[in-house]
Amino acid sequence: MKYKGPVARHYPTAPWTDDDSGSAVTNGLMPALRPIWDVHLRDTMICLGGDGNYYMTGTTGDNWSAFNDGIELYASSDLKTWRYLGLVWSIERDGTWEKNWTMRDGVPFRTIWASEIHFISDNYYICHCVSGVGMGVLKSTSGKPEGPYVHVIQDGPINKGGIDATLFQDDDGRVYFTYGGAVQIREVKHDFSGFAGDWQPVEYDMPAHAPDPDRPASAAKGVLGFEGATLFKAGGRYYLGCCEFIGGRYSFMFATSDNLLGPYRGRHEGPPGGGGGNVFRDKNGRWWQTYFCNDKQMPFREKPGLAAIDFDANGHIVLSKDQPFVGKAWKA
Results as ranks from 00 to 15, higher is better:
Y3S: 10
Y3D: 09
G5I: 06
G5C: 04
A8V: 09
T17F: 10
D20Y: 01
A24G: 15
V25T: 09
N27Y: 00
W37C: 07
H40G: 05
D43W: 03
M45W: 14
C47R: 11
C47S: 15
D51R: 10
T57P: 05
D62S: 11
D62F: 12
Y74M: 13
Y74Q: 08
Y74N: 09
A75I: 11
D78F: 10
T81Q: 15
Y84T: 04
W89N: 09
R93P: 00
G95Q: 02
P108K: 09
C129E: 06
V130R: 13
S131G: 04
V133F: 05
M135A: 13
S140C: 04
T141P: 00
P145M: 09
Y149F: 15
Y149T: 02
V150H: 00
I153L: 15
P157A: 15
I158T: 06
F168T: 08
G180Q: 11
G181S: 13
A182M: 13
E187A: 12
V188M: 06
A196K: 02
G197T: 03
V202S: 03
E203G: 00
P207M: 08
A208G: 04
D212T: 04
P213A: 04
P213F: 01
R215N: 12
A220F: 03
A220E: 02
A220D: 13
K221D: 15
G222S: 15
G228D: 13
A229W: 06
L231H: 10
Y238D: 03
G247C: 12
G248W: 08
M253Y: 12
D258M: 09
N278A: 04
N284V: 00
F292D: 07
K296Y: 06
Q297V: 02
E302I: 13
P304V: 12
A307N: 09
A308F: 00
D310G: 05
L319Q: 05
L319F: 05
S320L: 04
Q323I: 12
W330T: 05
